[in-house]
């Protein structure tokens, strides 16, 4: 704490850093918001061998699809911690009323949320891929795909969360709103693994996923801002 007491005016960048720091602090203070989605992810993936057969041949065939679908659902579940607490304690209103540009603050807030919920999910994936007997050469495309895909899913989920934060029981509605919109990420993400298994290069698909990420990063905050103004209304 600089006790010099001199009052420095902060540029947008510094105040964005303050929002990011606050977001990370809030999520770290309630570790459940980090651990629970990861636990869901691990448990859901390990249900599939229990539900189906355990032989490697069958598992490796569905591994990419299973991992991507459960990752998608885990991201949706982790969305709850994004706006809910801010909505209830009123800081969301302060954010909407602050003279700072809302667009960048929302972007920083969602990406901060991704850092603590999406990234661990990606780092945990090799363990689950091993459990599902995924062939060796498919690991890297799966990880790269998830690395590019989960922030996009976070942003799309944030749009759904912003639309439903004002409603009482909005868990299921969030999924109904957001899952159709996340289909391109799912298709190209698991497609990357399939093409690698077919021996084809996956770089083209990684480029498409990157393009989806850039588009979502630039457009989603507009929708999130509009949706939050409606929910707080």
């Amino acid at each position: 704490m600089n006790l010099s007491g001199s009052r420095q005016t902060l540029g947008t960048g510094a105040s964005l850093a303050a929002t990011l720091q606050r977001e990370l602090l809030i999520i770290l203070r309630s570790p459940g918001d980090i651990v629970n989605p990861l636990m869901f992810y691990v448990i859901a993936v390990s249900l599939f061998p229990l539900g189906g057969q355990a032989d490697a041949e069958w598992l490796s065939g569905i591994a990419a699809g299973v991992i991507w679908v459960t990752a998608l659902l885990a991201v949706m579940l982790s969305m709850e911690s994004l706006f809910r607490s801010d909505y209830e304690d009123g800081s969301l209103e302060q954010l909407l009323l602050s003279p700072q540009p809302l667009y960048f603050h929302l972007l920083v807030k969602v990406l901060g949320h991704w850092l603590l919920t999406g990234l661990p999910l990606v780092l945990l994936t090799p363990v689950l891929a091993m459990m599902l007997a995924l062939p060796g050469e498919a690991y890297w495309p799966l990880l790269l795909g998830l690395l590019l895909g989960t922030p996009t899913l976070n942003l799309i989920g944030a749009i759904g969360m912003a639309l439903t934060v004002g409603l009482k029981r909005s868990g299921v509605l969030l999924a109904v709103l957001v899952l159709p919109l996340s289909i391109p990420v799912l298709v190209f993400g698991s497609g990357m693994v399939q093409t690698t298994l077919n021996g084809l290069p996956y770089t083209g698909l990684a480029a498409v996923l990157g393009a989806l990420l850039v588009m979502t990063v630039s457009l989603a905050p507009l929708a999130i801002g509009a949706a939050l103004r409606i929910s707080v209304n």
Binding site: G166, L181, I183, L219, I230
Partner: peptide, 25 residues
């Protein structure tokens, strides 16, 4: 009022996404 605005936002998000969904499918 809020319901209509929320639905309009989702419609616009949808119209941006649907061509991409069709292309990916």
């Amino acid at each position: 009022n809020s319901g209509s605005k929320a639905a309009s936002v989702l419609t616009l998000v949808g119209v941006v996404n649907l061509p991409i969904i069709h292309y990916s499918v």
